[in-house]
């Protein structure tokens, strides 16, 4: 499918094969992603990501990934990690960027460099409960890509547009998701 000359480090043939296999066996496409989070002190928490379920069975990682979240000092916190909302930005930017690479591979476009900056505007009167009309979350998120690739501007824009269309985090952020929070 892909030319040997284009290499973005993405195994596009494997992705295509997986897509075909999962079309035949849709139950294997049911995944369950998880993280666990433990409070440390103040606004500081420590989260880990390890196993997940997919392809019909429990899957193991090569290692456990750890993430510290906190708030900056201006919130009277200790700044021991990025804020949770910044993790959302990281999630979105990394999801879109992975998508750009995969789609570029599929479309035979050699990438040289891909850089995204992502920013979210927020009026914190919402989270502080000062103004009911202000939402807690972002007013809007802006992602700016700088891409150097063997392709014209239209093709590069199409890569970025298609990656939004196929992105899980983009969907999570732009569409409502039912959330259930329980106490054991």
């Amino acid at each position: 499918m892909s030319e040997a000359t284009v290499n973005n480090g993405v195994n596009a043939d494997a992705l295509v094969a997986a897509r075909e296999a999962l079309t035949e066996a849709p139950q294997a496409a049911q995944f369950n992603w998880r993280a666990s989070c433990e409070w440390k002190n103040g606004t500081h928490s420590h989260s880990t990501v390890e196993g997940f379920f997919g392809l019909g069975e429990e899957q193991k990682r090569s290692k456990t990934f750890a993430f510290d979240a906190d708030h900056p000092e201006i919130f009277a916190s200790e700044d021991l990690g990025a804020t949770p909302v910044e993790y959302v930005l990281v999630g979105l930017a990394s999801c879109l960027t992975a998508g750009v690479a995969a789609i570029a591979q599929y479309r035979d476009i050699q990438l040289k460099s891909v850089k995204a900056t992502i920013e979210g505007d927020m009026d914190i009167q919402g989270i502080l409960g000062i103004d009911d009309e202000v939402r807690n979350g972002f007013d809007g998120i802006k992602v700016t890509y700088e891409i150097d690739a063997d392709a014209g501007r239209d093709d590069i824009e199409a890569l970025v547009a298609q990656s939004q269309k196929r992105s899980a985090v983009y969907d999570i952020v732009t569409n409502p998701t039912a959330v259930t929070v329980e106490v054991k």
Binding site: A158, Q164, Y170, T174
Partner: peptide, 16 residues
């Protein structure tokens, strides 16, 4: 009613 935040991209995709 809730609407997706994807309007800009839907239109960009369509123009492209």
């Amino acid at each position: 009613a809730q609407f997706s935040g994807s309007l800009l991209n839907q239109c960009a995709l369509s123009d492209l």
